[in-house]
Design a protein around this nucleic acid. Sequence first.
DNA 1: TCTCTTTCGTTGGAATTCCAACAGAATTAT
DNA 2: ATAATTCTGTTGGAATTCCAACGAAAGAGA
Lengths: 219, 219
Amino acid sequence: MKKYLDVLKEVNLFTGIEESELQPLLSCLSATTAHYEKGQTVFFSGQSIKQFGIVLSGQIQVVQDDYQGNRSIFAKIGSGNMFGESFACAEIKTLPVSVITTTGSELLFIDCRRLAVPCTKACSFHSRLIQNLLNIVSMKNILLTQKIEITSKRTTREKLLAYLSAEAKKARSNRFNIPFNRQELADYLSVERSAMSAELSKLRNDGVLNFHKNQFQLL
Amino acid sequence: MKKYLDVLKEVNLFTGIEESELQPLLSCLSATTAHYEKGQTVFFSGQSIKQFGIVLSGQIQVVQDDYQGNRSIFAKIGSGNMFGESFACAEIKTLPVSVITTTGSELLFIDCRRLAVPCTKACSFHSRLIQNLLNIVSMKNILLTQKIEITSKRTTREKLLAYLSAEAKKARSNRFNIPFNRQELADYLSVERSAMSAELSKLRNDGVLNFHKNQFQLL
DNA sequence: TCTCTTTCGTTGGAATTCCAACAGAATTAT
DNA sequence: ATAATTCTGTTGGAATTCCAACGAAAGAGA
């Protein structure tokens, strides 16, 4: 666990927690780690979860597949970030999404109830963690609201522009990289890959943007 | 404020709070009420909010309008429910949505920071409220995820079926009422109203469902 | 370096949505 | 009760997306 302390101290769940408190905290919470290979399913759609995860290394995606084989990507989550926290907190009976690894990954798992309920040791950090968790879940809601802004656009062109504008704003530059390949971007925008490529080419020909692989520039 | 105690004690923010504690709690939090007429804007897109609202009576919608005049409805919220809590908790600088009343409404406003930070009186309910708020924000997260499930479908037919199936599940019956008129339903599903009506007619002719106004039955 | 696999962009046809316009039904206001 | 307004469903054409197929470019593995 020590090898990941550098990662963990940057996790916003632990904001305001002294570095020296991290190890006892994780012990108190019975946190566990697990290694996953690329392409493995961490949480299956339909299951009930009580633990959420933190990505120590690697990358995961939150996805939903329909019966026709269309995949929707809800989010891509990298090192130092959390996943599944809302479902674990709400104690939902059937997870509506799956969580899969897109690279080999080390993941940390924490039981939500143990975090939220003060233990017999009356550890002082429980209330700090709950405050932090409230802030994190609120921020996730804002990200989901932004995703709805994108998926509720009527045309592929509008979805692309909404997404790329948001990425530019996040990068504070009109030159930025996106974290998806073409198929993943199409799945994130819920459109068809080849039609999206055609639309990207049109946008370039119209002088709206330039791109090369995952590098984009808004003009 | 007394007239709404019956409503307030059912609000899940106050779960586990004694009815006798409600009035002092609201005083401690400097909660305020306001009356809005139908069609008024409660929160404007772009503003920064520190307070969230509780609907005492009436109904509000969370919406987003684009420059072409297309409206997306994110949610419709009625009596006894909260709105804006994720944005207030996260202290976001620019609200990405607007909140408007669809009927005359009485709304209660609570400052998120006052709720989350124990006051000088060391009132005991702050930690209970934060636990409740975490649960509520998590549940909102799940509702947003369910909305993305709908808006990420590729066809109007699929969006309708996804939405109506979810409403049936919520009603625990294949006969149920939906809370929208046709234009509102189209805005909620992010599709065009007349095309959606045509698709509803097709679904009825295909023997998939029956409907009359806002009454639906899945076959 | 070569071979195999994956990714990306293009294309044309089928499917679907959007849009404007309209008429009739339902609702609201007088 | 009547008039005005709003809501709903229909229609046809334009616009757009999906889809399958394909070839070229890029990347990975031997």
